[in-house]
Simulated assay, not measured.
Amino acid sequence: MSTDTFKVKIGINPIGWSNDDLPALGGETPLSTALSEGRDIGYQGFELGNKFPREPAALRELMADYGLEVVSGWYSGWLAERSVQEEIAAVEPHLRLLTENGCKVMVYGEVADSIQGERSTPLYKRPRFRDEDTFKRYGERLTAFGQHLLKHGVRLAYHHHMGAYVEAPEDIDRLMACTGDEVGLLFDSGHAYFGGGDPLAVLDRHIQRVCHVHCKDVRPTIVQHARNRQWSFLDAVLNGVFTVPGDGGIDFAAIVATLRAHGYRGWLVVEAEQDPAVAPSYAYASKGYRTLRALVDAPLQEIT
């Protein structure tokens, strides 16, 4: 059995310091705090948030000052409603920001009809495609859009997400079936669990398409409350549904072992939106890093 080094990088999303969807959570925390603390913990890079510069040179200079890489950045896509050409025109500034900062993947989140940012709307009201033909046409547009990104050296990393069209495991299955290899999968362990699935089973089924990984843990009791009490996505976040690897109910040893066994070579990104007043940013970011670092560095036979 191979014990070769697992050649991945460990990054983090700034959402544990300052939340984009809920600005009241850490809104007062400057970006410099997140970058300096993340660097000191040991993270190699950051995904983008709303406090980062949007001009490529300025972003490059900022990250160089901290010795950090730009991992990727969320793009709010509307391909469920608009044409491929409209999306290509809309993505240009963001695509340039990523390409000029060395990113190899783009986090694509479908926001058409999404309720993920609506605190008053319970998750059961999330959108669904009305029939298979509609889903198929959506997949065709995604594939064409992914082809465009690949021409610029960036792969589309589709983020299945609570409150959106692609939430549950069966949605992910359908998405992968109706798109080409140009569309990669962003595997998010927390959203896979919250969406009603076994994260490891989802990963096993689609490992060949996984091009980016969000390492998010969950508190299973809060997931149950969110479903039973018909919470919105944002209410679930406020009540602590997510946490960092090693602090919840997901078996990250099995996830890391699967990624390693299949030769995954991308980023592992800690992304766990929480209220920093309840879950102090540095302490939780450090716990998430230590958990992943130990699993990544361990000989293969120790984690299987």
Rank of each mutant, 00 (worst) to 15 (best):
E86C: 03
Y75F: 15
A112C: 06
A157M: 06
H160Q: 15
G163Q: 01
L150V: 03
H161A: 09
Y108T: 07
G77L: 09
G77D: 08
D133N: 13
M162E: 11
T121S: 13
W74C: 15
V107Y: 12
A164E: 07
T134E: 10
H94S: 13
L142R: 06
D65H: 09
D133L: 10
R82Q: 04
E118I: 15
A157W: 09
T121M: 14
R60P: 06
V105K: 07
E92T: 07
E140P: 11
L150K: 02
K104Q: 09
C103Y: 01
F145T: 04
V111T: 15
G67I: 01
G102K: 03
E100C: 11
A144T: 01
T99G: 07
V105I: 12
D131V: 05
V84G: 03
M63K: 12
L68R: 03
E69K: 09
A144C: 04
Y158E: 10
K151Q: 01
A90E: 04
P122H: 15
S83W: 05
L98D: 01
Y108N: 07
R96A: 09
Y138L: 01
C103M: 00
W78A: 15
D131Q: 02
L142P: 14
E110K: 00
F129D: 04
L97N: 13
G102C: 07
R126K: 14
R60N: 10
D131W: 02
E86D: 06
G109C: 09
R128W: 10
I115E: 04
G102D: 07
W74I: 14
N101S: 08
A89M: 07
T99H: 05
K151S: 01
L123Y: 11
S76E: 02
D113P: 00
R96W: 04
E118T: 14
G146Q: 01
N101R: 03
R119W: 11
R128A: 15
Y158Q: 11
K151E: 00
H159Y: 12
R82Y: 02
Y165K: 00
D133C: 09
L62M: 09
Y158S: 12
P93I: 10
R119C: 12
V91K: 03
V91N: 06
L59F: 10
W78E: 14
M162V: 09
R155D: 01
W74V: 13
R155W: 06
L79C: 02
N101L: 04
Q147F: 04
E87H: 11
Q116K: 13
D65E: 06
W78L: 14
T143W: 01
S114F: 00
E118M: 15
R155P: 00
A112Q: 02
W74A: 11
H148W: 08
M63V: 14
P93Q: 07
